[in-house]
């Protein structure tokens, strides 16, 4: 275990300031500071508010992570940081801080891809990832299906949302129902008392014509509008809105499309492992439905525990550890924060 690299990871792509420390595939620390409460009244993440919070939280979060792991910066073998994709101003705070730590402690730095890090974090719980694997990443910021041939070299995008992210749809519907923010956990809870079959909401991009051009893509904007129309029609008719039923039916529509397309992606590529990550992976119905459908086709589903599904520093450290072990060259000190970083880049080349 002492031979394994000790890697520190910094994550600031959205509203979570995360610092994680891993040794090889072993998680030693996962410190997090969230600005989610500051965004609640705006019904979504406000980039400038998130950036300000990252600057305030970074040093204290770093200290907590070091204390938790019982290590010092001098012990660390490499520092990894989310270079993109994400909110430009938020990413820049983490990248600047990571450079400061790397410069001062004279350590190599790796600018890494946030989406690849969501996949890498699973290895902290379930061990080495069988490759190739299919990964489905669903959160407030992303909804993607990826083919993972080699986590350290490159990831092939299979499909992504063409409008709203899955988590965004949860936020919007929660707001529509007057349930609050963030919508994911609230809808999940509300749906437990509802009937998922009571209302049939549309499944985006599943019509035969869509399956030609958008087989592995998602669309949640039409679903959100359909829910709004349904709720308004009720209100106009002076009837009460069955919030639990709407939550359950909406959640079912999202999870149905996500899991159907993920399993289809596995089957069409002959892959037997599906990794699910991102905040929406914490949704209880998504986990159950994915397990059920995957089992029918002999596909293994790997979902990290909820705390590792949402954005955190451990995922960045986990990917950094993969890169170090694979002998990938570190990035340079001029590495950019790249809000639109593509998946062909797992780390910023040195």
């Amino acid at each position: 275990m002492r031979d394994e690299p000790l890697v520190l990871g910094i994550e600031t792509s959205c509203d979570e300031t995360g610092v994680g420390i891993v040794r090889g595939h072993t998680l030693l620390a996962d410190a997090l500071a969230s600005s989610v409460d500051q965004h609640a009244r705006f019904g979504g993440v406000v980039p400038e508010v998130a950036s300000r919070a990252h600057l305030e939280a970074l040093v204290p979060t770093m200290q907590r992570a070091l204390d938790e792991a019982g290590v010092t910066l001098a012990d660390v073998d490499a520092i990894a940081v989310t270079s993109g994709p994400g909110l430009a101003g938020a990413l820049l705070v983490g990248v600047a801080a990571a450079k400061g730590y790397a410069l001062a402690a004279e350590k190599p730095i790796y600018g890494v891809n946030h989406l690849a890090a969501h996949v890498a974090v699973d290895t902290l719980e379930h061990g080495p990832l069988p490759e190739p694997a299919v990964a489905m990443l669903v959160s407030g910021g992303h909804s993607s299906l990826l083919l993972v041939d080699d986590l350290t070299a490159g990831v092939t995008p299979l499909g992504a949302t063409i409008d709203d992210a899955a988590g965004e749809a949860f936020d919007k519907v929660a707001r529509l129902l007057g349930l609050g923010f963030p919508g994911g956990p609230i809808i999940d809870r509300s749906a437990r008392d509802g009937d998922a079959a009571s209302i049939h909401f549309p499944r985006g991009l599943t019509a035969p014509k869509d399956m030609v051009a958008h087989r592995f893509d998602f669309s949640f904007s039409g679903l959100k509008t359909a829910v709004a129309r349904w709720v308004e029609a009720r209100e106009r008719a002076g009837e009460p809105v069955p919030v639990a039923d709407v939550s359950a039916s909406f959640q079912e529509a999202v999870c149905d499309v996500l899991t159907a397309k993920a399993i289809d992606a596995c089957r069409s590529t002959g892959v037997r492992t599906l990794v699910i990550g991102g905040g929406v992976a914490a949704n209880s119905r998504l986990r159950v439905l994915a397990e059920e459908r995957a089992a029918r086709h002999g596909i293994a589903v790997r979902v990290p525990r909820p705390g590792l599904c949402t954005d955190n520093g451990a995922m960045v450290a986990a990917l950094g550890s993969h890169l170090v072990k694979a002998g990938i060259a570190p990035s340079r000190l001029d590495l950019p924060a790249d809000s639109a970083m593509g998946l062909t880049e797992v780390s910023v080349p040195g």
Binding site: L58, A96, A98
Partner: peptide, 19 residues
Amino acid sequence: PFTGLRVGLATAASMGHAL
């Protein structure tokens, strides 16, 4: 301008912390 300003401060704070 905030975005650029924070680069200097995040760098200074992290270096101070590390050293």
